[in-house]
């Protein structure tokens, strides 16, 4: 098992080209071709795509720019990178030629969790709800990387989830001995992503274990739960969601708070589903 972990980690971190879905890429390509476009407009589109967002944050947090781990907002990332670098990222990004349908479900799920995390953070009265949204957007990035870098293992995990009636998370543990939260932790550290995003990526299944940014991990955990309840998008299985009571407690939430957030999310998901990936 240890050998498998080492080889998977090597494969995961060796990822060179993370593809995305054509919808957002086309939209953002049009935007960057127009010199009149503001960075805010570009940020709004990129914030709907987990792969492009990850690329922006990876680049702006790379040691070359001199402030690794500081930037967790797409808008700030774009301003600091500048138009030329953004164009470079967009031009060099490819699209999935297979698995498009499976990925669409995962993309919807991740935008759903981003939307939910924003709603939850505002309800909890936290500063910078946008950063919680980014954390929610990236929480399942490890699944995308697994699909790209380890397609056979990914296939096995999906089949295991189906035949053994497991959650994707449990199926990962069954096949690999660890899950995408671990893969996320490797990626986040390797890419010098800020601590709040790293913790949400690596602790959204176990928010009570989060150390420094418990609130982010708890928000994304609840966001994941809500989006699964709505069965919006697909994150790799049809299992019922589970909720850690500690996450509610961390946010100071009563059931009624969660219900209010659910109502708001129901409205906003209608807009999200119109986007079309």
């Amino acid at each position: 098992m240890e050998d498998l972990k080492t080889s998977v980690k090597g494969q995961v971190l060796a990822i060179q080209d993370l593809p995305t879905l054509p919808g957002v890429l086309d939209e953002v390509t049009k935007l960057v071709e127009n010199p009149e476009t503001s960075t805010e407009e570009i940020a709004n589109v990129i914030a709907k795509d987990q792969v492009l967002s990850a690329k922006v944050l990876k680049m702006v947090n790379s040691p070359i720019y001199g402030f690794p781990g500081r930037i967790s907002s797409i808008q700030h990332g774009l301003v600091l990178l500048g138009f030329n670098v953004i164009r470079g990222i967009i031009i060099s990004t490819s699209v999935f030629d297979m698995m498009v349908q499976a990925m669409q479900g995962l993309w919807e799920h991740s935008v759903g969790v981003a939307t939910a995390s924003n709603i939850l953070a505002r309800r909890a009265g936290f500063d910078d709800p946008e950063e919680y949204a980014v954390a929610g957007l990236l929480h399942d990035l490890g699944k995308v990387v697994t699909a790209v870098q380890l397609p056979e293992l990914h296939e096995t995990i999906l089949n295991t989830a189906k035949t053994k009636n497991l959650s994707y998370y449990k199926a990962e543990k069954h096949v690999l001995g660890f899950a995408h939260d671990r893969i996320n932790a490797w990626l986040a550290r390797h890419w010098h992503l800020p601590g709040n995003i790293r913790e949400a990526m690596s602790r959204h299944h176990s928010p009570h274990m989060a150390e420094l940014y418990k609130s982010t991990a708890c928000v994304v955990h609840l966001g994941d739960f809500m989006v699964r309840l709505f069965e919006f998008g697909n994150s790799g299985d049809d299992q019922t969601a589970y909720l850690r009571p500690e996450a509610m407690k961390e946010l100071g939430f009563k059931m009624s708070d969660l219900e209010r957030c659910m109502d708001e999310l129901a409205d906003q998901l209608l807009d999200v589903s119109d986007m079309g990936f």
């Binding site: 720019y65 001199g66 500081r70 301003v79 600091l80 990178l81 500048g82 138009f83 030329n84």
Partner: peptide, 13 residues
Amino acid sequence: MMTARVIVNTIKS
């Protein structure tokens, strides 16, 4: 480094 980036990119824009 951050300040330099902010100024450079703003002026370039």
